[in-house]
Amino acid sequence: MNNVASILILVFLTITFLQSGYDKIFYWKDNVEWLKGHFAKTQLKNHVPLALLHVLVLELLSTILCAVGAIELLLNSGRTFGYYGAVFSCITLLMLLVGQRLAKDYDGARTIVIYFIPAVMAVYWLN
C-alpha cells in the first residue's frame, strides 16, 4: 500500500466531480438560471449554457479518469489514468476559477483553491 495518499486524493476528486456533474445533469435549468445571474455583468453572460456544458464534460472526464486511476493504482500500481484524471481535474478547477474571478466572486474563487491544492499534489505524485 505505497499509494494510499494518491488513492485517497483520486477518490476525493472522483466524489467531488461526480456530485458536481450529477447536480449539473439533473438540475440543469436551475443551474443555468442561477449562473445567468451570476455572470450577468461578464463576457460570459450570453454563453452560460455552453460554458456550463464545457465544465460538465470536463467534470465527467475527471470523474471517470480519477475513478479508474484509483482502481488502477490499487490493483497494479499503475499511474496513467490517475495522472490524467488529476491533470483534467486541475484544468477543470482552473476553468471554474476563471469564471469566479470574472464574476468577481472572490469567496468562490478562494474555495476552488481548496480543491486545487490536492489536485496539484496528485499530479505531482502520479507523474
Rank of each mutant, 00 (worst) to 15 (best):
G37W: 05
Q19P: 02
D30N: 08
I71P: 00
T92G: 02
R79I: 01
T80D: 06
S89V: 05
S20G: 15
A109E: 03
L93Y: 05
G108H: 07
L44W: 13
V48G: 11
N76D: 13
G85Q: 04
S89H: 08
V123A: 08
T111L: 09
G21C: 04
F116K: 02
I71R: 00
F88H: 00
K36S: 07
K104V: 08
T14I: 05
L18E: 00
W28H: 14
T80W: 09
H38N: 02
S77W: 00
G99Q: 14
H38S: 05
L50K: 06
D23N: 12
K24F: 11
F26S: 03
G99N: 14
S6W: 00
Y106D: 05
V123R: 11
N3V: 09
Q19L: 12
W34T: 09
I114Q: 12
A103N: 14
I7W: 04
V113D: 01
I112M: 13
L73C: 01
M95G: 10
S6K: 02
I64R: 06
A67N: 00
H47P: 01
I7E: 06
V68I: 10
S6T: 10
L75G: 01
V68G: 05
L93C: 08
F88Q: 05
I117V: 15
R101F: 14
F17P: 12
V48F: 02
L97E: 10
N46Q: 15
T63R: 07
L60E: 03
R79A: 09
Y27H: 15
L53G: 15
G99I: 14
I15L: 15
Q100K: 15
N46L: 13
F81D: 11
K104C: 04
L94G: 05
M1C: 09
C66D: 01
F17W: 12
A70S: 03
Q43H: 04
L74T: 08
W125V: 03
Y22M: 09
L8Q: 07
I9G: 13
P49S: 07
N46Y: 14
L75D: 01
R101D: 06
T16V: 11
I91S: 06
L60M: 15
A122H: 07
Y84N: 10
W125S: 13
S62I: 03
R110P: 02
L61R: 03
F116N: 08
M121K: 00
K36A: 00
H38Q: 06
L74C: 00
V32T: 05
L44P: 03
G37T: 07
N76F: 14
S77G: 02
S77D: 09
L61F: 07
S6L: 14
E72S: 10
Q43M: 08
V32H: 08
L50P: 04
G82L: 06
K45G: 06
L10H: 01
H38M: 14
F26H: 05
G108E: 02
F26L: 14
V11F: 11
V32E: 05
G21H: 13
L18N: 12
K45D: 00
N31K: 02
H47R: 07
A51S: 09
K29F: 12
S20K: 00
L8V: 08
V123C: 15
I117G: 01
F88W: 03
H47S: 11
S6D: 13
G99R: 15
R101A: 13
V98G: 01
